[in-house]
């Protein structure tokens, strides 16, 4: 028995090492702690604060989400794929309009990129992005004025995308979360259907009627077209059936796929900003924008 445990522990250790190695190799996307994420500490507090408030007012007015990320180094990661990874992980911009912009600056590599969401590619074109980098940011960076260059770049970006979208009237930030039926809702429906099916099964209704009930449950879940709902229904029905069949003993407790399925879907929360409650709205990026160096 102990040998089994030791083998298992060894395996875990190996897996752990692989994990550590993998994460050391690829630069992680930093957490979205605010609209201005300055990991290289180049922005004075007052500049960062005023930029943040400008970006906030801009979003309140236009729903565009613009964020700035300043990294000490890319650690060997190529700029464009990393920038795209950050933008899509942070999900800048609103869902549907995809109106997010990321300004990424890597100090050691002296490289920067403006990553533009799908919905703003028409106004903040690759060319316009290149011009902002070339004319607004790089000259100031070359003079050693990083905060000035970043502020000028951000304001040029905001000025360009000003008229593209309008913020929805009313508290759109709250609507955002309940826009589409979440996985959670499907699971709830599934559990409800499962409870029904389970009760039907355990009460020894006629075979045919139970079958009709299950078919109905299946149809409902199918209509929702979500596997998870069906799985939840199945699991609930099975568990309930087990519980209600206690007099029969634990026959047919076949394997441990139950927990597997339950842990399968993972979290359905979404990304939360943290500190000041800023989070991406679900925007997508298609690689638009421009890169530059100084």
């Amino acid at each position: 028995m102990s040998r089994v445990w030791r083998a298992a522990a060894r395996l875990m250790l190996c897996l752990g090492m692989v994990f550590v190695a993998a994460s050391a190799w690829a630069l992680d996307v930093p957490p979205l702690t605010g609209r201005v994420v300055d990991l290289a500490h180049v922005l004075p507090a007052d500049v960062a604060a005023s930029l943040t408030s400008d970006l906030e007012t801009h979003e309140a007015k236009t729903s565009n989400q613009v964020a700035v990320l300043i990294l000490p180094s890319l650690e060997g990661e190529p700029l464009e794929p990393f920038s795209h990874r950050v933008a899509t992980t942070w999900k800048l911009g609103q869902k549907g309009t995809d109106n997010g912009v990321l300004l990424l600056i890597a100090l050691r590599e002296r490289k920067l990129r403006i990553e533009v969401g799908y919905g703003l590619e028409g106004t903040l074109t690759d060319l316009r992005s290149a011009h902002i980098i070339r004319n607004e940011i790089v000259p100031r960076f070359r003079d050693g004025d990083l905060p000035g260059g970043i502020a000028a770049g951000v304001h040029a970006i905001l000025g360009t995308i000003e008229g593209s979208y309008k913020a929805e009237e009313g508290p759109s930030a709250h609507v955002r979360h309940s826009q589409e039926p979440s996985t959670f809702q499907y699971v709830l429906v599934g559990i409800f259907v499962g409870v029904m099916a389970g009760i039907m099964l355990s009460h020894g209704l006629q075979y045919t009627r139970a079958l009709v009930g299950s078919a109905l449950a299946f149809l409902v879940a199918q209509f929702a077209s979500i596997v998870l709902g069906v799985v939840a229904a199945g699991i609930t029905a099975f568990l309930l059936w087990l519980i209600l069949q206690t007099n029969r003993g634990a026959r047919g407790r076949r394997g441990n796929w139950g927990p597997d399925f339950i842990s399968g879907p993972g979290g359905f929360g979404g990304s939360y900003g943290g500190d000041i409650g800023f989070s991406g709205g679900g925007g997508d990026f298609g690689g638009g924008g421009a890169s530059g160096e100084w």
Partner: peptide, 21 residues
């Protein structure tokens, strides 16, 4: 009933997985 339940359950699972596919 127990066997019946299992059969029914497997049937439900298979049909749903196949159907969703």
């Amino acid at each position: 009933m127990g066997k019946c339940g299992i059969t029914l359950f497997s049937f439900l699972m298979i049909v749903s997985v196949w159907g969703c596919g």
